[in-house]
Design a protein around this nucleic acid. Structure first.
Lengths: 350, 350
DNA sequence: CTGAAAGCGCTAACAA
DNA sequence: TTGTTAGCGCTTTCAG
């Protein structure tokens, strides 16, 4: 029925253990033997049984991708990460399991155990905001399961992938400043995401460098969702001196801002400049197209998984690699409207 | 270290086999014994090893979700399906693997084998357009692996979940007709998706019922993507008698139509009504919000997975369940513009 | 209704 | 550099 390791051994005239060694890329095999075995595996179409390997050995060749189901970022972001991780798995003959977690659940640890310990998971890819969720990291360590993080807040002793979001955010706000904007608002994301803070810090950096005092009125709490962007924008529009530009911590919220602008009859970018962060597909599907920061999510998923696998294969300790960002300047941002000398007027257009 | 089945047996004073029977819900166990064993499992926090079960037995408690990585629908759609499948897995103590496939790859069958046969996958969830891809279905059958389909074209002997898309599309176009539209265009999706045809048929049904002759000029080929929606719309706008309403086979393309309308200076819905299909998050994030058909994707994923598990547990043969659609009438559709007596004029607005 | 034995396909720890 | 001997934790026979 199934071609087993033993069959390959018999066909090659070596012991099963030697075939096992070849399979696991152990160095202590004579090159000629190795070639013979490899050839036999190929011609017999041998495919090792993950169950047997998992049961007998210490490795399962299984990685899991963990994400938060409550406070999760846009599903397009996670989907891209997932595709990237799968790319890496493909290249290294790993399989991937997907595990949505609910941080607020009592069940949380139980679910981690069920996945990691039951399936003998070799390693884990952790996405925001789980990257810095202490109970999770602690539990993984207790299980002795290594992890790679995507955009973690704490960089010490962590492997995975990150981006200089603060610098990116500063560059984006610098662009707004260059266009003459002074009243620039920022809409934050969930507090437990590093992204919310880094992007806020970048905003602050840019404003400070331009000599504009930080004004908390122009910083509104959002939740990374479209709806929260709408609410935040409505709130900003009611200010006595409404902003001429709004920087939302991600594209979904920026879309919400544009929606609220439409609702209020404000024209983007003539009356209001809007920018986001992530460069999700949505950014180019909005009208006008959204100025944002491109984050190479799929590559980030792949790179994080590759670092994890480097470590799993004992080929190194794994690194925290940094990927470059790039500004996507599009039509949702333009020069600030000319200031009318009289102050305190409100824009109201049908 | 690990609590094994044998430990539970010893603690309960029964044989390992009996514990196994309880674990597998075999009927031939005395209720009192069963309760004792269950209690011991619980108190000892016993968790069976999937590897050992997979190796020894015929079941792995693993299902796989397959999707096409080339011609795939919007990632938000797949993400929702995936969440639904995971819901069902959770409830029935199954684990899920994810497997993106590329229909055009030479590697295709190899990848199916690798997943299904290597991992002893118990069953598979198939998403469009793989639901009707013969080589895949054939291979699954050869492996003896059952599958549940989401929105399959062929309903015979198939289990899973479907929706009456034709009727839904007809209802949507009926709505446009009621608003006075006569020149209604349709943008199709990929030809290998049943959705493209059903929705086209619904369109034809409605037009025919209204006594409007089918005019192929008003039916343009798209690819379910935003970009293809833009292109299709541009093409329609150049017609001597451009449509007053456009029905795109999914929301992404409808968003493309609205984008192209903006580009051309057409106002939605005053100059042009637009509607889509699926009710993805995008639909309510567009301005104006998009009239569309709600498809309960997450529920569909869950229901399909549940049917599969019914079958796997031998509790029945599994069904092809039908879920209801619902029209979401929003602001992207309105009464047809008043016809100017003179014919052949083109709308051109700055 | 319950139990004893014999593996599933592979790798660990030793040897040689 | 290679082979031998035991299992990994469960389920499958087949008996009782």
């Amino acid at each position: 029925m199934r071609v087993r390791l033993e069959d390959v051994a018999r066909a090659t005239g070596v012991s099963p253990k030697t075939v096992s060694r070849v399979l696991n890329e152990e160095p202590s095999v004579k090159e000629s033997t190795r070639q013979k075995v490899l050839a036999a595996m190929e011609s017999m179409n041998y495919r090792p049984s993950p169950s047997a390997r998992g049961l007998a050995g210490s490795r399962s060749f299984l990685v899991a991708m963990l994400y938060d189901n409550n406070d999760n970022p846009a599903s397009t972001y996670l989907a891209e990460i997932q595709d990237g991780v799968l790319d890496a798995c493909d290249a290294h003959r790993y399989s991937m399991m997907v595990c949505p977690l609910r941080v607020r659940d009592q069940d949380f640890i139980r679910r981690v155990d069920a996945l990691v310990s039951d399936h003998h998971i070799d390693g884990v890819i952790v996405t925001p905001p789980l990257t810095d969720y202490a109970p999770l990291l602690k539990r993984l360590q207790e299980h002795g399961v290594p992890h790679a993080s995507i955009s973690p807040v704490n960089h010490e002793g962590v492997i995975g992938v990150c981006m200089d979001e603060q610098k990116a955010a500063k560059a984006l706000v610098d662009h707004l400043l260059q266009q003459g904007h002074r009243r620039i608002a920022y809409i934050t994301g969930f507090a437990n995401h590093g992204a919310s803070r880094w992007r806020l810090n970048g905003y602050k950096d840019a404003m400070a460098a331009a000599g504009i005092a930080y004004d908390p009125k122009y910083v509104v709490q959002g939740e990374f969702t479209f709806g929260s962007g709408v609410l935040a924008a409505r709130q900003l529009f009611t200010l006595r001196e409404p902003p001429t530009a709004i920087f939302a911590a991600n594209d979904d919220m920026a879309a919400g801002v544009m929606w609220a602008a439409n609702e209020r009859g404000l024209k983007v970018p003539q009356d209001l400049s809007v920018c986001g962060f992530d460069d999700t597909p949505l950014a180019t599907q909005l009208w006008p197209p959204l100025t944002t920061v491109r984050q190479p999510s799929r590559d980030m998923g792949k790179l994080a998984a590759l670092q994890l696998m480097e470590l799993l294969r004992g080929r190194g300790k794994g690194l925290l690699v940094q990927v470059p960002y790039s500004l996507q300047l599009r039509e949702s941002t333009a020069s600030a409207p000319h200031e009318v000398p009289a102050k305190g007027r409100r824009k109201t257009r049908a």
